[in-house]
Design a protein around this nucleic acid. Structure first.
Lengths: 124, 124
DNA sequence: TTAACAATTAAACAATCTTTGAATTGTATT
DNA sequence: AATACAATTCAAAGATTGTTTAATTGTTAA
C-alpha cells in the first residue's frame, strides 16, 4: 500500500486505477533478467535449430554441425551458451561429446512452446 | 527415403540411425527464423517487461516508460518492434496512444510461457 | 494560430553477438 | 611416442542491436 502510492504518484498520467494485484505481481528486475536471458538463448536461429535437434536426439558435435549447416567452432560456441543456461547436457564417449536437451521441466516446457509457436505462426 | 539417404550420407558420423520421423518433422529454415524471431522479441529485458505489463493492463507510452524506468523514445522503439511482431496492439485516444497485448493465441500463449518460466527459474 | 503535450523519428554512439580460421587441447589408436 | 581425429579455445572481423539526445510529427485546448 505504501508501495502503491509511491508508484501511482510516480505515474505521470492517472488513468484507470492500477490494481494492487498488478503491482504486487509485477516481476522483479532479477526475474525479468532471468526469463529474458532464457528466451534470448532461443531467440537466435542457430541456437533454436540446435536446441530443437537436441530435443529429438542425442548427437555429437560434428553431426550437429552437419545437420545445422554450421562449422564446428560455431556449434561449440552455441552449445556452450545453451549448456550454461541449463538447457542441454553433455557426455563424453571416446573422442566424441554427445549433447542432448536437459531432462528438466524448463527444457521440456520450452520445447512445447517452440512447437506451439511453430504451429501457430507457420500452419503447414 | 531418398531424403533420408541424402542427409544420412551427409552426416560425417553414423551413430544410431536417425528415424524418418525426425527428418520429416525437422522445421524448415523459414520456420526456424519465424519462431526465433518471436522469441528474440522477448529475449530483451526491456521488451519483456513492457510485454508483461501490457498483458495485464492497457497503458499510454508515458506511463509505460515510468513503470519500466525507461525514456519515451526507448519505449517507442520497443513498442514498434513488439507491434510489428504482432504481439501488441495500439489505439489512439486524444493525444495518447494506448498499447496492450494482442488478443491472439500467440500473445496469450507467450504470456503463459513467461509466467511459467518465471515460476520455474525464480521460485519466490 | 499559437502553445502545450504526447509520441515518433533520426542520427550517433556504445555494446553485444555471431561467425570465421587458426591454434590448441583432449582422447584413442597404431 | 607418434599419429589421427573430435572438440574447444582464441583473436579478430562483421553484423546486429539497444540506448541516448535532439528534432519532428500529430493532437488538443486556449
Amino acid at each position: 500500500m505504501l508501495n502503491d502510492e509511491k508508484i501511482n504518484a510516480a505515474l505521470p498520467h492517472k488513468h484507470d486505477e492500477i490494481e494492487e494485484k498488478l503491482l504486487n505481481d509485477m516481476p522483479s528486475d532479477d526475474t525479468i533478467r532471468s526469463v529474458s536471458g532464457i528466451l534470448k538463448q532461443l531467440g537466435d536461429p542457430s541456437r533454436l535449430k540446435i536446441f530443437w535437434l537436441l530435443c529429438h536426439c542425442e548427437e555429437c558435435v560434428i553431426n550437429i554441425a552437419a545437420l545445422a549447416n554450421m562449422t564446428s567452432p560455431a556449434v561449440s560456441h552455441h552449445l556452450r551458451l545453451l549448456k550454461s543456461s541449463g538447457l542441454i547436457t553433455s557426455r563424453r564417449e571416446g573422442k566424441e561429446m554427445y549433447y542432448k536437451a536437459a531432462d528438466t521441466e524448463m527444457a521440456s516446457s520450452l520445447h512445447l512452446t517452440i512447437e506451439s509457436i511453430a504451429d501457430i505462426s507457420c500452419p503447414n
